[in-house]
Design a protein around this nucleic acid. Sequence first.
DNA 1: CTTATGCACGAAAACGTTGTAGTAAAATTG
DNA 2: CAATTTTACTACAACGTTTTCGTGCATAAG
Lengths: 339, 339
Amino acid sequence: MRPKITLKKIAKEFEVSISTVSKALKDSNEISKDLREKIQAFAKLYNYKPNSLAVRLQNQQTKVIGVVVPDIVHHFFSMVIRGIEEVTNKRGYNVMICLSNESFDKEVMNIDMFTNGSVDGLIASISKETQRKNDYSHFKNLLEDDFPLVMFDRINEDFNCDKVIIDDVSGAMNATSHLIETGCEKIALVTTPNEITVGALRKKGYVKALQSHGLEADTNLMVEVNEKQSIREQIEELFDRNVPDGIFAVNEVYAVTAMNVAREKGFKIPEDISVIGFTDGPISQLALPPLTTVVQHGFTMGKQAAELLLDRIESKEDIQPQKIVLSTNLKIRKSTKSV
Amino acid sequence: MRPKITLKKIAKEFEVSISTVSKALKDSNEISKDLREKIQAFAKLYNYKPNSLAVRLQNQQTKVIGVVVPDIVHHFFSMVIRGIEEVTNKRGYNVMICLSNESFDKEVMNIDMFTNGSVDGLIASISKETQRKNDYSHFKNLLEDDFPLVMFDRINEDFNCDKVIIDDVSGAMNATSHLIETGCEKIALVTTPNEITVGALRKKGYVKALQSHGLEADTNLMVEVNEKQSIREQIEELFDRNVPDGIFAVNEVYAVTAMNVAREKGFKIPEDISVIGFTDGPISQLALPPLTTVVQHGFTMGKQAAELLLDRIESKEDIQPQKIVLSTNLKIRKSTKSV
DNA sequence: CTTATGCACGAAAACGTTGTAGTAAAATTG
DNA sequence: CAATTTTACTACAACGTTTTCGTGCATAAG
């Protein structure tokens, strides 16, 4: 790579001091107009840009924020990132993304790396393995140092930091209620293992909705998908045990898989079985019939998280950590019956 | 945020010089074992980490690489990013991602930002708007400065830089040939406008396959989807004009949409109409019937791009730019007839 | 003619680190 | 016991900026 041009080199060229060059480029009128213009022209010609490392070291702020997400190949997370990008860029920051790949060790490494001064703050969502291990010491260290941190979606309620989540319980309740209200009586739940907090919350909403309608929660109608095995087979087992007339799945992959299983077994959607998913991505939209889903506004979530973080970074005083709960809404398409 | 601990502070604590502390932490035996251990213990206690900005400024390398992609909410791009992450992390680098959102201006800004010394090199894929404008001055500036740059997927052949692409032409040829060989005679093409290079290349492969089988390319069977309007309607128009018995679509969204349109019009897949897509994502896998697609190995592409970039960054001599062409393979599922 | 006021620039410190080149004092050698 | 080596440290420059505080010199004011 061609060596970068620096103030020092420009200074040598004009036989002036570095400060003069710096000021000239800042268009300070401490420097004579004549010299200023010459220096500016020269800098432009050689495409001078202040070395950002030096500037950041000087200013003691990086104007970069870090993002740690479990996965990027995931409609919801990528929408969140897009939201984050949108507001950070608007407010003059850049984003550095690291993936934990749902691994505890990688998450710890990422957090560690980010706290060496490369970013002004962090937005994170907890990996599945971390949730399973229930070991949050890496995050707790951050909080002890008052490091600006915003958690989203997969959070830990105990942390004293800003949080942005969606109302998983009511989202699931609304979905389940909708199934009940459109005539379903045997509603299955396809969810994650209980360690995944959002899965657990959505199950809670499902159960709550059943109870408030006088229905009983039947564990025979619930599948906790173990992703190490075939999702499809686990759902087929549900059908072998007990054929539902409605299915609430906690994400779009489970929902569409369930729909496909049902159809292959000869059931019609939504006439025989209604299906509702969670997260409104292209999978739901392009499914046939298009899937009724609980839409969680990932983009908004990212924007809000970023706003919280930047407000915290930029404020001088301590501000009390906030918890923003975004509500979901039910996007009714064709995989459920009309009332 | 709690002020970060620095060498200077540790030095003051022990009433020694900064260099002593630096060496003690590097476990140099220039420092007495006794003092070394005390300093190390103190540093660990206060969770000292060398300020990465200072280290990077000193070493004149950031150990960070930049990635500019048009979109992140896109299975292919996110797989590429995952591949990039995999090898950069393994080789001790971090990744900074910026999205151009398919916008020319944002792409220019991103590139500009990255060349202020914040990264050691760049991996990029060109935005649609840039391809339409055909203005590549921002990239050309990079190359003039010999800035380490690797382009992938949406590239410009004229650039004298490392490139990783897939063999779009043969991918499309294989797909189209497969349709012909399984009995299709009126094969439609659903593609992007011609400015999008990969779309143009896939069209080329489609035409080539037709010709080599003695079939004629019929513009009446081609749709160039304008994404500002409804994808669905544009495909419906194709059916109104001319009902095909095979469809080759240049991405999974177009393919599944086409499949859905066909089915709603009462055609059976694959009995009446066979469909092949491009890119093997969840949309294809979860479609019903599961979609036969040309799989482009995004993860491999990311890995290769990262290897090329890091090799270039780390080598002292100039290395000749390489162009890696990854071949695709046809994943035959249920949306096409068997031979 | 002296004193204030601009003007146009330079010197130097600071950000936090690393590495080289010293330098006293202690220990070893002849 | 002087000469040498080793030990255990410090000083300082450097990376590229920014910014504060000078400082000569010319011009204007009293």
